[in-house]
Simulated scan of single mutants.
Amino acid sequence: MRLIFIIVVATSLMPISAAPAQAAPLDVKGGYYHFIGDEGGDVDVTAQAAVLRNMEALTQYRSIADGSTFPGWQKEWINNLGPGVDRNFVLELNYYGAGEPTIPRPQTVDGVVVPAPDMTIQQRPGDTWKWAYGYRQVTSGQVDPLLKRALDQLKTMPYAETVNIQLGSEFDTDHEFGTTENGIAHGWAASDARALTAVQYIIGYFRSHGLPAGVTFSIGMGGWHRASFRRMHPEWLRGDVQVLQWNAYNHGTPRTPYQVFNRTRAWAIEDLPRWRTKEVVIAEWGTTANVGNQAVWIAGAGAAIKRINTDGRGFRIGTLTYYDNDPNWGELMDRDAGLEALRSVYTARPFIG
C-alpha cells in the first residue's frame, strides 16, 4: 500500500505533458514456438533461444487428458529456462496425449473413473471431427480429477508465477460449425455460451484448490471472428480473466504487421471498452511464405507493436510468440533467415528498453 500511495501522489503533482510517454510500450516480451508433428510434439527451443538472445516468452499446448501437464512429459527444459520467461500454457479440453486421440476412453485418476469425452468440436464438413470433454462434463464435476492432477503438478512447478493458463486454443475455430455434446447439437453462439460456463468453472476450481500466486488466466481465441470474440468476453467474466489473448497471422490476403496485430484489437476497443486496461498475449503469430518474404515481414513487427502500444487506445500488447509450425500459417521456410529477423526484432525497442 505504501508504494501505491507514493505513485498516486507523484502522478497527481506531475504536469500531464511531463508524463513518461514511452514507459508503457517498453518491456514487450518476444517468444518462439516450434512443433514437429507426431515425431516430437512441442520442441525444446533452448537452442533457438540462444540464437534469439532475448526470448522471454513461450507457448505450450496441453490436454487435460494428458497425465503430464505442467511442465509436460520430458519437458524439464521449460523449467530450466528460469524465471525470466513467461510461460503461456494452452490448457485444452481436446482429447490428446493420453492414447489415440480418435479413440476417446475413460481414465482412472486417483481411484476415480473419469468418463470418456462426449463432445465433438471443429466440425468442419469433410474433416474428421475432434473429441473433447463436454462443457457439461466440466460443470458437473466429472473431470475434476483431471483438473486436480494438472493443478497438483502446477503447485510443484518452479516459477509458477510466470504461468498464464490459456483456456482453450481457439474457441472460435472449435465452435465455427457448432458442437455436439452427448449426441445433442449446439450452434456456434450456443457453444460459446456453454464454453463460458466451463471456463468459469475451471478458473473457480483452480482458485479454490490452492492455485499458486501469480498464475493468470486468458480465453483462447483465434481472434478472426468479431462476434465470437465479443461473446467470449462477457462483462461478468472480466474479473476472472487477467489478460486478453488472440492469435495473429499474415495469411491468405497479404496484410502489414500493423494490420495483422491490430485487427482484433480494433474490435476490442469498440466492443469491450471496460477491458482495455488488460494486457494482451499474442500466443501465436506468423506469416506464410506465399504472401511475401517472411524475414522482411517479421522485421516490421517491432514498429507495429510500438505503434499500437503508444496510441493511447488501450489493450497494450505485452507478449507475442512466433509460431514456427505449418507452412500454411507461419513455418519458417528459411529458418536461419527467419530466426535472424526475429532476433533483430526481439533485441530492439519495444522489446528492449
Rank of each mutant, 00 (worst) to 15 (best):
G84D: 14
G84I: 01
G84P: 04
V85P: 06
V85G: 05
V85F: 07
R87D: 01
R87M: 12
R87W: 13
R87A: 04
R87K: 15
N88K: 04
N88M: 07
N88H: 09
N88A: 05
N88L: 12
F89E: 03
F89C: 05
F89D: 03
V90E: 08
V90A: 12
V90C: 15
L91N: 02
L91S: 02
L91C: 05
E92F: 00
E92G: 00
E92C: 12
L93A: 06
L93Q: 01
L93W: 10
N94W: 10
Y95Q: 06
Y95M: 06
Y95F: 15
Y95P: 08
Y95A: 03
Y96M: 07
G97W: 11
G97H: 10
G97R: 06
A98F: 06
A98P: 10
A98C: 14
A98Q: 12
E100K: 12
E100H: 12
E100N: 15
P101F: 07
T102P: 02
T102K: 13
T102Q: 14
I103R: 12
I103Q: 14
I103M: 09
I103K: 14
I103E: 14
P104L: 02
P104W: 03
P104R: 01
P104I: 02
P104M: 02
R105Q: 15
P106N: 09
P106L: 09
P106G: 10
Q107I: 04
Q107T: 06
Q107V: 04
Q107H: 05
T108S: 14
T108L: 08
T108F: 06
T108A: 05
T108Q: 12
V109Y: 01
V109W: 01
V109I: 15
V109A: 03
D110L: 11
D110H: 10
D110E: 14
D110G: 13
G111H: 09
G111I: 10
G111N: 10
G111K: 08
G111S: 09
V112T: 15
V112R: 13
V112H: 10
V112C: 05
V112Y: 05
V113N: 11
V113F: 00
V114E: 06
V114K: 03
P115A: 08
P115M: 08
P115H: 08
A116G: 09
A116C: 12
A116W: 05
A116Q: 10
A116H: 07
P117H: 04
P117C: 05
P117M: 03
P117Q: 02
P117F: 03
D118A: 14
D118H: 00
D118M: 08
M119P: 04
M119F: 04
M119W: 01
M119C: 13
T120F: 00
T120C: 00
T120L: 03
T120D: 00
I121E: 00
I121V: 15
I121K: 00
Q122V: 09
Q122S: 14
Q122N: 14
Q123D: 09
Q123N: 15
Q123L: 13
R124F: 12
R124I: 12
P125Y: 01
P125N: 08
P125K: 06
P125L: 07
